[in-house]
Amino acid sequence: MRAVGDETATGYTQGKGKNAANISSREIKSKLFKGLFIGATGFSLIVLLVLLIRIFTQGIGFLSWDFLTSFPSRRPADAGIYSAFIGTIWMMAVTAPVSFVLGVGTAIYLEEYAPKNRFTGLIQMNISNLAGVPSIVFGLLGLTIFVRELSLGRSVLAGGFTMALLILPIIVVASQEAIRSVPAELKEASYGMGATKWQTTYRIVLPAALPGILTGNILALSRAIGETAPLIMIGALTYVAFLPEHLLSQFTVMPIQIFNWTSRPQEEFHFVAASGIILLLVMLLVMNSIAVWIRNKFQKRL
């Protein structure tokens, strides 16, 4: 039996000798391209590594307690990020609640209440289109509507609202996914117990979807913290030696302060900018870690 099998195999190989050579060259080609694909993927990782190492080696020398607690200065050695750091926190205090309420509200409407008609389709399409609008165009909107028409001035409130609208699509989409992933059995059990729609939404759906919603919100906020262009448009200042006192105060944020330092000709200011970037990246890292932690902690329960 075995001999026969071998014979056939040998005959086959001899007959198709040309094809066999072809196979090995095709295999080599396959291996070669595999290397190429790995190389391309590795490129991104290397760039990320180089970027982080560059910024850390440039900025670590200027990073100190004084840097965190000083106002900006004309002399690089005295320059600090205090007013920008506090400004970022003020702006987030406006953006976070506004975008949370609007985003989650929209998601609940679309997932739980909206009838399946043209109008709902329009809202859904509108949200995905808004996600593709360049951030600087949101800045033009903020400048015209919030700063001028509503006379909020170049204030924390105008900046916070603009940012809330910018990240709204991200929050809506993330919250929709979270709400959609709540099992239908949970809702049906609630209805079966005689709960109304709002009671079911408020007591069953929202608590179950909350981890997903929170993760989406935190990720969206971390996008807002790093955004520069829209805030330049609404006129967040580049040189601020005071802290915002109320919601209508003028302010600056960390990315704008970093932009200001980057565009100065003196090289020392680039080191100061790098220190600011380290602080910004650490903030983003903390927020993302919290988001991942929430996701992992609550994922298994459903």
């Binding site: 985003g103 209440y113 329009l122 949200i127 808004l130 165009v137 033009l140 909107l141 609208l165 709204l168």
Partner: peptide, 24 residues
């Protein structure tokens, strides 16, 4: 009340687009 509240939230996103287009 709640459906109306949520519909209002959803309308903000439409208003944002309208605001952008009209402003421009």
């Amino acid at each position: 009340l709640m459906p109306k509240v949520f519909l209002t939230c959803a309308l903000i996103s439409i208003l944002t687009t309208v605001g952008i287009v009209l402003t421009l």
